[in-house]
Design a protein around this nucleic acid. Structure first.
Lengths: 202, 202
DNA sequence: AAATAAAATGGACTCGGGTCCACTTTAAAG
DNA sequence: CTTTAAAGTGGACCCGAGTCCATTTTATTT
């Protein structure tokens, strides 16, 4: 079972399991849209889906995984499209980094509710999980690669601690931080994007 | 009652209240040191302190406030000393910003456990609280002031969105992020400090 | 088709966070 | 020294997260 509740690898899913998984995801989507991620409880999702709590928790250890499942398709598309754009030959690494960061900002804005809601249950011991998540790894690796290319192309100071900076540039994209700036302070997306890009050391 | 469980302003605290507050704080300190913030429950703190849960929650709505109370004195001293250093006349604004960020990094490292533990209960609805906390305000205002001074002194590009950047520079100091880099990845304090300072746009 | 093992199920249960409120203590007023 | 009201107290109670496991369903083997 992978982290989105799908059968991983070759092993196949029993039909009752598959049915329940579909029902649970559909129920979650509806409930989340109706009342917001935060105010929906796991108990309720189980009840409305017509399954026991054990069944729900077997695949989705907490609400965050449910949000991830709902974000699965948008995330794939986002990564796909981004990779294609970055494959362009003519742009400089620094230019690509600009594009990448801007796209991350936009993606975050577009999926803010699910991202924010999915962050909620990541509290106690597992709140560091998000830093070892594949999607986060992908971001970090991409930024790191572009920074290194920037160094090679002479646009970035070679003395820069690129490993640190790659991560630090992602910190303002942390969902809570972003949510606060955007929803509470009312900072428009464009300002976040250009502000973030201004942080890239040249 | 202020956010550290102390009587705010002129109103005074009843002696039974004062006694319980002292006992609770002392108990917390001991339990936290013995077993780590995370594994101590509010129930336990109440029980060991010999007070009811209601009494505990009256002053400390959650474990985070307890950690804050324990960090109160170090925080004051830190702010005090920092202000004195920043009052120096000879240093440039950019130089002062360097010092300030470095001090923040050190402070975070020195108090990591309480800071990290205190962040734990900030989950559900109130996880944005940390961004409207006085201590955070102080940081943001200081960085903002120094950036503006930097613009005036000609060291910082005047087109920079200083409001955004002031906040963004604090994002990598977010306790979870810091904890992950330092404790999990093993990044030494000096690298975090110099890496962070390299992010300041000139 | 029957037997068997593995996978899946669901609800009872435990646990801690947090609220509530009837009761007690304090301190100020008379 | 009483009275009185406000402040403080503590434990019963509710709620949702998450675990556990006896039972049921599915898939595979014979």
């Amino acid at each position: 079972m992978d982290h989105l509740g799908r059968p991983s690898g070759w092993e196949s899913e029993r039909i009752d399991a598959a049915r329940n998984r579909r029902v649970i995801i559909q129920t979650s989507r509806t409930l989340f849209e109706e009342r917001g991620v935060t105010s929906v409880t796991m108990e309720e999702i189980a009840r409305v889906s017509g399954v026991g709590k054990g069944t729900l928790y077997r695949r989705f250890p907490h609400k965050g995984f449910l949000c991830q499942a709902l974000l699965d398709e948008p995330t794939r598309r986002f990564q796909q499209e981004t990779l294609e754009i970055l494959r362009e030959r003519e742009t400089s690494a620094i230019g690509k980094l600009d594009v990448f960061l801007d796209r991350l900002v936009t993606f975050t804005a577009e999926n803010l509710d699910l991202l924010y809601g999915g962050n909620e249950p990541l509290c106690g011991a597992d709140r560091l999980e998000r830093f070892s998540h594949p999607a986060y790894d992908w971001r970090r690796a991409t930024v790191l690669g572009l920074l290194r290319a920037g160094v090679r192309e002479g646009d970035v100071d070679e003395r820069l601690d690129v490993e640190y900076v790659a991560q630090a540039l992602l910190a303002p994209l942390d969902v809570d931080f972003y949510y606060y700036q955007h929803r509470v302070q009312g900072l428009p997306v464009e300002r976040i994007s250009s502000g973030l890009r201004a942080l890239v050391p040249r």
